[in-house]
């Protein structure tokens, strides 16, 4: 006896087709807004001469973290500039910044809600597991019918892939606030929102920053992979190197990604420390 195969794939495709046709106006609007955002930020960053942006980033690193990170930033960015990867680096940075912002804006309310409602928590956690364990490439495929080939699709996939840690850590941070502090706030007659803004959020900030750091790192890795669906930036340099079998070019672009990753990581980590 033959067990019929579950047509899971065709169901999903049907669903996606329905979504793309029903909500085409919505996806087109999102696409337009995102595209504009990317272009504006890109142009702004590229309008600055390389040395000026380097100086700006160095000062930021120095103020937020340490002189060492400032010097490191100058050296690292100088290497990227020297390799002629400045423009792709800026494009990648733009994608990371926008994707991270969108992810955080969406993640915070969800994370807070999941922390405050146990029922929502039980629904959301498996969804997050799903989002995180699904191979990242898979998100690229539905992105194309929604937003077409290009950077907007890259951002869509990146947001989905990088959002879970921000949600998770926000929820964790709020749930970690000691019971007695919640009791203290309650005992003095705090309303829900007073409790949230005066006690729960400030106390979960360090944990939330850890989540945001993770989100940025995931966004960076995804933005590179998204070159496969036409995203600009360092990823497309790597992608081109693969297609032309040029390991040297590939590693150069890869090293640029590493430098960018380290800069972003150290910067956000120190943000977390100074905020304590």
């Amino acid at each position: 006896m033959e067990i019929p195969r579950i047509p899971l794939g065709s169901w999903i495709e049907g669903g996606l087709t329905w979504l793309t046709t029903e909500y085409s106006s919505v996806t087109r609007a999102i696409s337009r807004v995102t595209q504009t955002g990317i272009e504006v930020l890109n142009e702004a960053l590229m309008w600055l001469p390389e040395w000026a942006l380097m100086a700006l980033i160095a000062v930021l690193c120095w103020r937020v973290a340490s002189v060492r990170l400032g010097i490191g930033a100058v050296l690292g960015l100088a290497v990227i500039w020297n390799l002629g990867l400045w423009d792709p680096m800026i494009e990648t940075l733009t994608l990371v910044v926008i994707a991270t912002l969108v992810a955080i804006v969406m993640a915070l309310p969800v994370g807070i809600a999941a922390a405050l409602s146990s029922r929502l928590y039980r629904v959301i956690m498996p969804v997050l597991d799903f989002m995180q364990t699904m191979p990242a490439f898979v998100y690229l495929i539905p992105a194309i019918p929604f937003f077409g080939i290009g950077s907007v699709s890259a951002i869509f996939a990146t947001v989905i892939f990088s959002m879970p840690p921000a949600i998770r850590f926000t929820t964790l941070g709020i749930r970690q606030v000691p019971v007695e502090l919640i009791e203290a706030a309650d005992a003095y007659g705090a309303t829900r929102s007073q409790k949230l803004f005066k006690v729960q959020l400030p106390l979960s900030l360090p944990t939330m920053m850890a989540g945001i750091n993770q989100t940025i790192m995931l966004a960076l890795s995804m933005v590179v992979i998204a070159a496969m669906i036409g995203a600009d930036g360092l990823g497309s340099e790597v992608w081109r190197a693969i297609q032309r079998l040029r390991p040297g070019d590939g590693f150069e672009a890869g090293i640029a990604v590493v430098i960018l990753a380290m800069l972003l990581d150290r910067l956000t980590q120190s943000l977390r420390r100074t905020r304590k």
Partner: peptide, 19 residues
């Protein structure tokens, strides 16, 4: 809430100060 604000202050065993 009103009753708690008007009638009760509380001191806790482990202080429960906001860090």
């Amino acid at each position: 809430l009103e009753c708690r604000r008007r009638h009760f202050s509380m001191v806790f065993q482990n202080f429960a100060l906001f860090p």
